[in-house]
């Protein structure tokens, strides 16, 4: 589903964020990207989403070389990739329902599809009762559920999550992890960057560890260390 071949990413100012990284992720896998702050986790996520392009190496997503992708095709790539962030990125002037519906609306999905998909996904994340509320009326954990609902409502092949539990307390984080696990069990490939030791250790999934831009460990059913 995802292949990185000797990928190097250098930001301006000669910051090497990723150095000769190679890695292959199968369809339906759940992968933790771990490593200290600044080790290149977010960079890897942004490369997969083609928010950034590498200086060297190749990246394949769903069988396509995404470096060579012409710019008008990028939106179609992103329709296959859901994204979740530490800061949720919800729109404060839209209700929960509208926030999720927006993601379908702007890719031209017809109204009747939106009307059935949005309530269904809100049911799945356990927020059916809060449809009419605004994001600032929800707890952090609930807001993150909305953002997961928005990322998953279009049933993407891949879900990228960059520190989704970074702003949440451990108990709430467990709930978010259950949700991501559930999504993974539907066949969606999940890549999650985190430095939350407890979560990684309890889930016992594949762990890819980054250190100053290099992949230093790739372990099936791994722990944080």
């Amino acid at each position: 589903m995802i292949t990185l071949e000797n990928v190097t990413k250098v930001y301006k100012g000669d910051v090497v964020a990723l150095k000769d990284a190679s890695c292959e992720i199968q369809k339906g896998e759940f992968v933790f990207l771990v490593g200290p702050s600044g080790s290149g986790k977010s960079t890897m996520i942004r490369l997969l989403n083609r928010e950034e392009v590498p200086q060297a190496g190749k990246i394949f997503v769903a069988g396509k070389d995404i470096n060579g992708l012409s710019s008008w095709k990028i939106p179609y790539l992103r329709r296959n990739i859901g994204c979740v962030f530490q800061d949720y990125k919800l729109l404060p002037n839209k209700t929960i329902y509208e926030n999720v519906a927006f993601a379908l609306e702007v890719i031209g999905r017809p109204k009747h599809v939106i009307k059935t998909q949005v309530p269904a996904i809100l049911e799945l994340v356990g927020l059916a009762k809060k449809q009419r509320n605004y994001p600032d009326e929800l707890s952090g954990g609930e807001q993150q559920r909305v953002s997961i609902a928005r990322a998953f409502v279009n049933r993407p092949l891949i879900l990228l999550a960059d520190e989704p539990t970074g702003n949440l307390d451990p108990a709430t984080s467990v709930g978010i992890m259950r949700l991501l696990d559930r999504i993974n069990r539907t066949g969606t490939t999940v890549v999650m960057a985190t430095h939350d030791r407890g979560i990684v250790d309890s889930m016992r999934r594949r762990v890819v560890e980054l250190d100053r831009g290099s992949i230093v460990r790739d372990q099936v059913r791994g722990v944080y260390e």
């Binding site: 989403n49 710019s71 008008w72 939106p75 179609y76 790539l77 992103r78 329709r79 994204c83 990125k89 729109l91 404060p92 927006f102 993601a103 702007v106 890719i107 031209g108 928005r150 990322a151 279009n154």
Partner: peptide
């Protein structure tokens, strides 16, 4: 800008934006 960021993220085309 927040709307536009989300639109790009979920795969809205530049024309649509």
């Amino acid at each position: 800008r927040r709307e536009i960021e989300v639109m790009k993220l979920v795969g809205a085309t530049n024309w649509f934006i």
